[in-house]
Amino acid sequence: MKTVKMLSVTEENGMQTPLKFQLKNEDGGRITVKVDNVIFRNEEKLAGNKMLVYRCQSQINGVLKVFELKYEVSTCKWYLYKM
C-alpha cells in the first residue's frame, strides 16, 4: 500500500470523489492515473480507524484495471491499496 498525491472533489454534502492521482515509481519518477470510474464506495472502521474505500477502474497503458483507493480520515492521507 502506497501513499499517493490525490486530486479529488468534495461535494457540498461532504462526499468525496477521487479524480486523479500520482504515485512514485521505483526510479523516483511520478506516474499519473486518471480515475475513469468509481465502481463503489464503502466505509471501514478496522481497528477503530475510519477509512473511506473506493473501488475504481481506469485505462492504464491501454489496459482496463480495477484498483482500490483508501482515504484515512484521521491523517487525511490517500492510499493506493490494491492494483
Partner: peptide, 11 residues
C-alpha cells in the same frame, strides 16, 4: 490483534 488489524488495513 490490534497491531495485526492495523497493519492489514495498511496493506
Amino acid at each position: 490483534s490490534w497491531n495485526a488489524v492495523y497493519a492489514l488495513q495498511h496493506g
